[in-house]
């Protein structure tokens, strides 16, 4: 993961570890991975909001909650897989999966996921 690679620049920065972590992430992560990461953060926040709404306000209609929440979780899983497969650092682990192939898998999986979500949303 990028964090492990950031150790040398963090020393150079010489400030708090979190800040240096952030700086190193900004510097060493490619734009694509950043796009993926921001998408993941969005999905996580959306899922948290729905979960809180379900717990605190109402879980009725429950099928709508399941659909909304599952779309966040499912999309998160798919996106995380995509991130793992297109990350150059993992090139050795996914020798036979090209980034294009990984993206095609991701897109197809997402479309199927959304199909089920809207069916279930009510």
């Amino acid at each position: 993961m990028p964090a492990t690679k950031t150790a040398p620049p963090a020393k150079k920065a010489g400030s708090s570890p979190l800040l240096s972590l952030w700086k190193a992430y900004n510097e060493t992560t490619s734009t694509r991975l950043k796009t993926i990461d921001s998408f993941l953060v969005f999905l996580m926040l959306s899922g948290i909001v729905q979960f809180l709404y379900c717990i605190l306000i109402t879980n009725f209609p429950f099928n709508a909650f399941l659909a909304g929440f599952a779309s966040c979780v499912g999309q998160f899983v798919l996106t995380a897989s995509l991130r793992a497969q297109v990350n150059p650092a993992n090139r050795n682990e996914f020798k036979e999966v090209s980034p294009e192939r990984a993206f095609a898998d991701f897109a197809l999986g997402s479309i199927v996921l959304h199909f089920f979500v809207y069916n279930f949303l009510g």
Partner: peptide, 16 residues
């Protein structure tokens, strides 16, 4: 009552 869930599903698709 289900608008947050609808919004969640639609925003996921839009974000995708």
């Amino acid at each position: 009552a289900a608008w947050p869930y609808y919004a969640g599903a639609f925003s996921t698709s839009a974000a995708f």
